[in-house]
Design a protein around this nucleic acid. Structure first.
Length: 1086
RNA sequence: GGGCCUAUAGCUCAGCUUGGUUAGAGCGCUUCCCUGAUAAGGAAGAGGUCACAGGUUCAAGUCCUGUUAGGCCCA
């Protein structure tokens, strides 16, 4: 097999199975084909500008479409796009989720899967209505009705798509590949019909029903809210908290005492029906000399304060039936059954007085208690949240605004015991921020509680990232599942497709499509807009039945729309071909949103598909933490700390933003995004990678080398090549494993470390070989860049595409036309050399120590030293090749073993290796370690050196220790610069002779000339003519090293002469001089 | 009141699953070194009660319990 073999196209080759990579390796790459060479690459790159070019390239090549066409017939990896409501401008937090929605589909596509990415828009719902209302200056439902539902909904339809353009711009700019040409839209007729079909399924299972319930209700919006909407709207507010006297009118304390009742909603006192006590709590009648009050015993002090004496005790159950005088007589009560004490389990003694005021219309517990006790429903507040106009004191007042007047009135009548502001979290409408009422009204429910076991089962089978959500936050929510309040008394939503017989309200028909409706009505309604108000006009009768069927007025919760997207995006089951599409793409392998969707989309998806198909619609769900501003707070206009996504990407590049989202910190955690973090990514990751590419291209072009020219097999290349090849394969395995478990953080850390090693170790150490155009080095780096480019492609699709176009594609006719059409690398185990990475790590460790020793001895690196000594074990492990690397790096003549030095040069020390000793000796570990430390280290070192063991005595017992049990350090004695750390030692021989000094000077001169070359603006390949002037030792040194210096600086001539005076003839040469060195040079381009 | 998450250097964060000798990185600061790709790189220094208190263990940043503080969610 020929060809450049690192990447190979067609890992998936169109057959209906996955074909793993063949065993082609990049060991031998010889091909006779003449290949074009690398495209020139600028050393400095403008990343945002490059990204715009790449976007244009993708556009012109149709790359995204090709990434799907190429996988025609391949196994699918299904992704669902959670539809944003395009009802606002996109923010940086949208980028976060979209990065994750892009990375894994790209990765899986490269792995050979077909990953369809159908975009979608959430079109219905209150947010849209609110925005339109605001635009039209409306203030509630009556305004809308006056305006006309048809016109209003037309405005909503228009508003929804108004910001789509902004989302599309951001989507394109960040490189998120999603099909925005053919998105699903929840307002489309086919989508609505799918939702109807699902509701019909649920209806037929008896799980869709109407009930009176107390539910959170927004009086401004005039609709009930679902629990997950309520969940989003808690706000901390200060409410009046009042303790009120309810004088007793029956029972043993009648006329003598009052109940003390606590509430934070004084406006509900108008509708008080009952007081609840807890049966098994002790209540007391307490007096302070002027009055007697009844409270729960544990709360006496908290509720009443000091100075109260207890007159009598009662069990809660004793209180049952005692009547009291209600706090307000503002509303007439229809019967006599009210205003007495009942017992309820939900009463607690945590807060208040242990006596709870109940108003059945305004609390869930109150409602159930009222129903149990046959209490009439008294509700003086209309659906807009205002008290009935005719009432005294509060007539026409908005419920929240009535508190002050009511409290003042209680006070004036002597019923107010105490009034303190109370700060608590109270639910508000998540869109309009109006305080919610808990309000009894009829509503349609999906009986999700019936499916609770199935939901728990499906959750068990779903993989959550991070997994704590599964049975933590989300599982908790499922276990406390309540029925889904589905209906909304609104306008812009999927109409609830239930028609009720007006003669017999128990007769209901749930319609699953316009076709069914056509059949029922006997006229063709296939072209009907299924929205209000048109659908409201559709009525029908049925043979043999009296009355007319009319649609119920409600629309449904938009969350049900989004939860239906797995099938509704295809119009399933009505649209032709939708069944096949649905079956191919259900369930999804992957969805991803931020954590706020636990009770939103994650739930609605799971609930809908479990109810309809008895199966969850996603297998893996990634749940992201929120993005915060640089100051650690939420981004908000109010705080002025907003970063807009497109400008942010135009400044730093989308790749940097993507890398931040995917790889910086933990994605599950709330994270701070800021300019500094992004700049660091650009500098440390992206530019380091780019510079390595630029370096490679520069020297490959200089040498006229291209991959087709071939190179020796990897096994025959120098050690650093073998190391890099091995490390690259390990990187492939590591990054693949990380991405397969959705761990972008670790994948990013591995890649960043690799790029750093590549640039700052491999390339730096191998520069000389690149200057010389060594095919082994060039081939190694080329193949590595090819692999790492593909590994980085899902994370940073732009810069990798540019590199692909500059480096891989021009040099390989078989290369895919885009990196995103290339196949994912598969680790070639045959290239992995066991232990090599450790050896190289040791070499790097020793150079580190050597540098430290030089710094300590103030021996600058350019001054060659005769030799450095390292422990014998390290010396052996390194081998010849790596010893040479270390010698070069440290600028020493030779790296020698300490063991070879004369005996008194080395001092041994030994200490115990706790990890090893601990396993063997347990409790005795510290004693054995102490014995090792005290032993004769030289003898011990000698004994264990050859795999032998050494006996130490611990509390009279002899214990054998071997090499693994101890850490032996060798430490040279005086006259040496020594750095010793954790068993590794480097000793430098600091003695200089004339030859070394001269070599040092020569190297200074080289350095000087190189700098001069650079300052003179020469190309790296330019030859030069040099003249120099120096005296004494320096002159001797230059003379002695003329050949070396010339070679190093590409001088065709290096003559000793008086340089031209600086004042004259500067145009003919570049002059530099170093006073410390006593050398002046002058150079001209040859 | 309940659930979950977090607490490690001035700042941003790894490390905790699987306990091991002297707890790391980057940014910032100081002093050096190196540099014919680099907006880079390297060495040294300053900077840490690994939130606190118990416990398990020969050994705890890591495991267990409790507490405190912050965050998110729910009541």
């Amino acid at each position: 097999m020929g060809g450049r073999c690192v990447h190979q196209e067609g890992w998936y080759r169109g057959a209906r199975r996955l074909v793993p990579s063949s065993s082609r390796s990049f060991v031998t790459c010889r091909r006779m084909t003449v290949t074009a060479s690398y495209r020139p690459v600028p050393a400095h790159v403008d990343l945002p500008a490059t990204e715009r070019d790449v976007i244009a390239l993708w556009e012109s090549q149709g790359t995204f479409d090709k990434s799907l066409e190429q996988r025609e017939g391949a196994p699918r990896w299904t992704f669902y796009e959670g539809p944003p409501t395009a009802n606002g401008t996109p923010g940086v937090h949208h980028v976060e989720a979209r990065v994750f929605k892009d990375v894994f589909p790209r990765f899986r596509t490269m792995q050979g899967y077909r990953v369809e990415r159908k975009g979608g828009w959430d079109c219905h719902g209150l947010p849209v209505e609110i925005a339109v209302e605001k635009e039209l200056g409306f203030n509630g439902k009556p305004d809308i009705e006056a305006y006309g539902i048809a016109e209003f909904n037309a405005k909503c339809r228009e508003a929804v798509l108004r910001n789509v353009g902004l989302f599309e711009e951001m989507t394109e700019r960040m490189g998120y590949w999603v099909d925005t040409d053919d998105p699903y839209r929840t307002m489309d007729t086919s989508y609505v019909e799918s939702v109807w079909w699902a509701l019909q399924q649920i209806f037929e299972k008896g799980l869709l029903s109407e009930d009176y319930r107390v539910a959170p209700y927004c009086p401004r919006c005039g609709t009930g809210l679902s629990d997950h909407e309520v969940a989003q709207g808690y706000e901390t507010v200060v409410d009046p908290s009042v303790f009120v006297r309810f004088p007793l009118t029956s029972g043993p304390l009648a006329g003598e005492a009052s109940l003390l009742v606590w509430t934070t909603t004084p406006w509900t006192l108008v509708s008080n029906a009952l007081v609840a006590a807890k049966a098994d709590v002790t209540y007391v009648a307490a007096s302070n000399g002027t009055e007697t009050l009844v409270v729960a015993e544990p709360l006496v002090e908290k509720a009443l304060g000091e100075g109260w004496t207890i007159d009598a005790r009662f069990e809660g159950s004793d209180l049952e039936g005692w009547a009291y005088q209600r706090p307000f007589e503002l509303v007439t009560w229809p019967d006599d059954n009210a205003h007495y004490i009942v017992t309820e389990d939900y009463v607690t003694t945590d807060d208040g007085s242990g006596l709870v005021h109940q108003a059945p219309a305004f609390g869930a517990d109150d409602f159930l208690s009222g129903r149990r006790n046959g209490i009439a429903m008294v509700n003086p507040i209309d659906s807009s949240g205002h008290f009935e106009a005719g009432l005294d004191l509060v007539g026409g007042a908005f419920f929240k605004k009535a508190d002050a007047a009511l409290v003042a009135d209680l006070d004036s009548r002597g019923l107010l015991f105490r009034h303190v502001p109370y700060e608590h979290a109270y639910p508000h409408c998540w869109r309009c921020h109006t305080a919610l009422m808990y309000y009894a009204s009829p509503a349609w429910y999906v009986r999700t509680t019936v499916a609770k076991d199935a939901l728990l089962r499906e959750n068990e089978n779903t993989a959550w990232y991070p997994e704590t959500i599964q049975w933590g936050r989300y599982g908790d929510w499922l276990r406390n599942n309540v029925d889904w309040a589905l209906s909304r008394n609104r306008f812009w939503g999927t109409p609830l497709p239930i028609w009720r017989n007006d003669a017999d309200p128990s007769k209901l028909v749930c319609v699953g499509s316009l076709a069914e409706l056509s059949e029922l009505t006997g006229r063709d309604l296939s072209g009907l807009d299924p929205h209000r108000p048109y659908i409201d006009d559709v009525t029908f009768t049925r043979d043999g039945e009296d009355g007319t069927y009319r649609r119920v007025p409600e629309v449904i919760d938009a969350w049900f729309d989004s939860g239906s997207m797995p099938f509704a995006q295809w119009g399933y089951p009505h649209v032709e071909g939708s069944a096949e599409k649905f079956e191919q793409a259900f369930p999804a392998q992957y969805i991803c949103e931020a954590i706020d969707q636990t009770r939103g989309w994650f739930y609605s998806l799971m609930a809908v598909s479990t109810l309809v198909f008895d199966k969850n619609s996603y297998e893996n769900v990634v749940c992201l933490g929120h993005i915060l501003a640089e100051d650690g707070r939420k981004m908000s206009k109010h705080l002025g700390n907003i970063l807009l996504p497109v400008p942010l990407m135009d400044e730093h590049g989308a790749d940097a933003v993507r890398w931040f989202m995917a790889c910086s910190g933990s994605p599950w955690q709330a994270r701070r995004v800021g300019h500094q973090a992004l700049q660091e990514i650009v500098r440390k990751v992206l530019l380091t990678y780019w510079n390595t590419v630029a370096f490679h291209v520069l020297y490959a072009r200089t040498a006229g080398w291209s991959p087709a020219d071939g190179a020796p097999p990897v096994a025959e290349r120098p050690v650093l090549d073998r190391w890099l090849a091995s490390r690259t394969q390990e990187l492939v395995a590591e990054v693949t494993a990380c991405l397969e478990r959705f761990d972008t953080q670790r994948a990013g850390a591995s890649l960043a470390q690799f790029v750093d090693d590549l640039s700052n170790w491999y390339v730096r150490r191998s520069r000389r070989r690149f200057w010389n155009g060594d095919p082994a080095a060039l081939a190694t780096l080329h193949d590595t860049l090819d692999v790492v480019t593909r590994l980085m492609a899902p994370l940073t699709p732009f810069i990798t595409e540019q590199v692909w176009q500059d480096v891989v594609r021009p040099t390989d006719p078989q290369a895919a036309e885009s990196v995103h059409l290339a196949s994912w690398p598969v680790a070639d185990d045959t290239l992995i050399v066991a232990g090599l990475d450790d050896q190289v790590a040791l070499a790097r460790r020793i150079t580190e120590l050597g540098r430290a020793a030089r710094a300590e001895a103030k021996a600058r690196t350019r001054q060659p030293l005769r030799r450095a000594l390292v422990p014998s074990r390290a010396w052996e492990q390194l081998g010849d090749e790596l010893r040479t690397e270390v010698e070069d790096e440290l600028n020493v003549g030779a790296l020698e073993s300490l063991a070879g030095a004369s005996g008194d040069l080395v001092e041994y020390s030994a200490k115990g290796n706790f990890r090893s000793l601990g396993k063997r000796f347990g409790k005795q570990t510290p004693k054995v370690a102490a014995a090792v430390a005290e032993a004769d280290a030289a003898a011990l070192a000698a004994a264990v050196a050859d795999g032998g063991s050494y006996a130490v005595v611990v509390e009279g017992e002899t214990v054998e220790v071997s090499a693994d049990d101890v850490i032996v350090s060798e430490r040279p004695r005086e006259g040496w610069a020594v750095v010793n750390d954790q068993g590794e030692t480097v000793a430098l021989d600091l003695e200089l002779d004339e030859a070394l000094v001269q070599a040092g000077i020569a190297r200074e001169v080289v350095r000087m000339l190189q700098e001069a070359r650079k300052n003179a603006g020469l190309e790296v390949t330019d030859r030069i003519r040099v003249t120099w002037a120096a005296s004494g030792q320096a002159a001797d040194a230059v003379r002695a090293h003329t050949a070396t210096i010339s070679e190093e600086v590409l001088a065709v001539e290096l003559g000793e002469a008086a340089p031209r005076p600086a004042s004259a003839g500067q145009s003919e040469g570049y002059v530099a001089s170093d006073e410390d060195l006593g050398v002046t040079i002058s150079l001209v381009k040859a």
